[in-house]
Simulated assay, not measured.
Amino acid sequence: MIFILDEQVIYDSLNGSLRRADQKITDAQMLTTIANKILSHLVIHQGELVSRNTLFDEIWEKAGLVSSSNTLNQYVSMLRKIFSGYLGEKEVIITIPRAGYMFSKEISVNEYTSVQRHVSLWPVIVAGIIGLSVFIAGTVMFASTPEKITPRKIGELKGCPVYDISGVKSNIGDATSYDVARQALEMNNQICTETTVFYVYAQEMIHLHKPARVLFTRCIEWKDDRDTCQNIYYYNWIR
């Protein structure tokens, strides 16, 4: 769902993007998967206490991950910093001592119903790849650009096409990437519709059965070129 926050910030909870109402979709800031899930919970329950245990259960436990209060605090701090760039000193996420967090009642939350602009899905996917690469390399940015990426169809899942966007072509690599996409789809309960397309990117070390970084993207594509994508990151995937 797409929201407009405080009549100024457009938030797409499906792909985790934030942008000012006067910005283009391609200028949106992309949240990490976990940060997006936290914000989505808070926005949907605006004005209500969202307990720390609820966030731990819904975001980490269900994904089979372990977290801590310190990790949650860091994500909330990051979200506050991001919103300060859009809304200045307004208090957006309120801490309820020893209980949890609440999305401020003073920040209006409405469903955004304006007509979507036509935009290619590649900036969204490439933004995800860049974000993943920054995590891997630290200060080194991923060198590929939308024009250099050539998706290759490597199969179908539940009737929807699966494309590899690693740029590396090999039978072994394609088989591994397809298996990663299959597992990621199952773990995240992703569904296939007639407008769904899946993309997968995996570090080459995954073929050596070593921990690897993985990006799995589900996109909804329309014939009139509208699209929206959801990026899911795995930082320590082991076959």
Rank of each mutant, 00 (worst) to 15 (best):
V66C: 10
S67L: 05
T71M: 09
T71S: 13
L72A: 03
Q74S: 15
Y75M: 06
Y75F: 12
V76Q: 02
V76R: 01
S77E: 05
L79R: 01
R80G: 12
K81M: 10
F83K: 01
S84M: 13
G85K: 07
G85P: 03
G85Q: 10
Y86M: 03
E89C: 11
K90Y: 02
V92E: 01
V92H: 02
I94R: 06
T95V: 13
I96M: 13
A99Q: 15
F103L: 03
S104L: 02
V109M: 00
V109A: 01
T113H: 01
S114T: 05
H118L: 14
H118Y: 12
V119L: 09
S120W: 03
S120E: 08
V124G: 10
G128K: 01
I130A: 06
L132K: 11
S133V: 10
I136W: 12
G138Q: 14
T139H: 13
A143W: 07
S144A: 15
T145M: 13
T145E: 14
E147D: 11
K148I: 08
T150E: 15
T150A: 15
R152N: 06
R152M: 09
I154K: 02
L157E: 07
V162C: 06
D164G: 02
S166W: 01
K169L: 05
S170M: 07
N171P: 10
A175R: 11
S177Y: 08
V180D: 00
L185W: 07
M187S: 14
M187Q: 15
N188E: 10
Q190M: 11
I191A: 09
T193E: 14
T195R: 11
F198C: 03
Y199Q: 02
A202G: 05
E204L: 13
M205W: 05
L208C: 09
H209T: 14
K210S: 13
A212S: 10
